[in-house]
């Protein structure tokens, strides 16, 4: 199998990676995390084995970038009197469902990561365990615990 143009990778996986970034670092830092993820991926792309799982590879990169973003955020002062710009509500699920994204941010890291990588990126727990450095069983439990907490705290789940 031959390697495809990187444009195909962005087209095919851009939306998923954006959702993962929103879930993991929150809507405000998500676009920075997305940009850094794809720039890192572009740099490494020629060396990617042709039989690699591209989505798992991207999520792995996004995970590392998310850790960087989280570290940077913990070092910078938290603004208390400014609100993030309000994006187009149709374009940004975070704007439509702020409760869920806020609830995600309150989950412990392992649970939030496991939920994002399984329920948003669709990765199997074996792959997630590699990214998180735990076992598939632990990854599955973290995702289940995360979803349980989200269902408890997220009012929006009562709709529809």
């Amino acid at each position: 199998m031959k390697v495809r143009p990187f444009e195909d990778v962005v087209t095919r996986h851009g939306a998923t990676v954006l959702r993962v970034c929103r879930a993991v670092v929150g809507p405000i830092d998500a676009e920075d995390a997305w940009s850094e993820t794809f720039l890192s991926a572009l740099r490494a792309y020629p060396d990617l084995p042709t039989d690699a799982n591209v989505e798992a590879w991207l999520v792995t990169i996004a995970h590392r970038r998310a850790l960087d973003v989280a570290r940077a955020r913990s070092r910078r002062p938290i603004p208390t009197d400014t609100l993030p710009e309000r994006a187009d509500p149709d374009a940004d699920p975070a704007a439509r469902d702020p409760d869920l994204w806020a609830a995600l941010q309150r989950l412990p890291d392992k649970q939030r990561h496991a939920v994002a990588y399984h329920h948003l990126a669709g990765l199997p727990f074996a792959e997630i365990a590699v990214i998180l450095g735990n076992s598939p069983t632990a990854a599955r439990r973290a995702a289940a615990d995360g979803i349980k907490t989200l269902r408890k705290h997220w009012k929006g789940d009562e709709r529809s």
Binding site: L18, R19, A87, P93, H119, L120
Partner: peptide, 9 residues
């Protein structure tokens, strides 16, 4: 519960 987010802008 993430079904709503299937369509991104």
């Amino acid at each position: 519960i993430f079904d709503f987010s299937e369509r991104d802008g």
